[in-house]
Design a protein around this nucleic acid. Structure first.
Lengths: 103, 103
DNA sequence: TAGTTTGGTAAGTCATTCCTTACGGTAAGT
DNA sequence: ACTTACCGTAAGGAATGACTTACCAAACTA
């Protein structure tokens, strides 16, 4: 459940679509499947990937499994991205400085 | 050059490694290749993907092509992630509220 | 208890992707 | 002009991944 897992989980379009859907409102597997262009097992497999990435959690409700968004996975990715953002900005600033120096 | 492209670009481990390397310091293609477990053409292809995602830019220096990190691609991804982060937090808070309501 | 609803898993297929070697092309050095 | 250094692209192969259908398990319902 590191940011690598989260990154690959969110890279897939339909998986990201599923995540955005449960972030808007928690939902069951079948309900998600009928709203998407893929089959129910596909949704189930995507939800497993999202769960492994710490992006969703499940609560059983009778025979239904309700999936909801959870912040854990995103928190790690956010930290990594902010760190990267800082590094890129300083690197970019250095490049500008060196460039104007050689003018 | 939307956040989708950036997301898939950063999802690959060696490609992310290349991006972090040029973010630490701009470098040529061959210099990156000798530091990585992949061939020089592989690095070149990865750099093309990073360039398409707006994550790097090139400056020719004789026969050498110097790649440097650029903030454009990351900016879009950051915006998307912050938006998503907000949605997830509010959704998560709502779930907690509903849960304590049913106790 | 029998039937229905809901989901996860297995097995297999098809597309994508990451990597390789081979080749061509441009710029600098002698 | 010839060689050397450096790089991008083409073509192909191997691995990964996303999706399907088929099947099985668990929990409500009548």
């Amino acid at each position: 459940m590191t940011y690598q897992t989260t990154l690959t989980a969110l890279a897939d379009p339909t998986r990201r679509q599923i995540f955005e859907a449960v972030a808007a409102e928690p939902s069951s597997v079948g309900l998600l499947a009928v709203q998407l262009p893929v089959s129910r097992p596909a949704v189930s497999q995507h939800l497993k990937a999202l769960s492994d990435a710490g992006l969703v959690n499940v609560t059983k409700q009778g025979t239904r499994n309700i999936y909801a968004a959870c912040p854990d996975g995103l928190a790690d990715l956010r930290r990594y991205l902010e760190q990267l953002w800082g590094d890129v900005l300083t690197s970019f600033a250095n490049d500008i400085a060196k460039e104007s120096q050689s003018d």
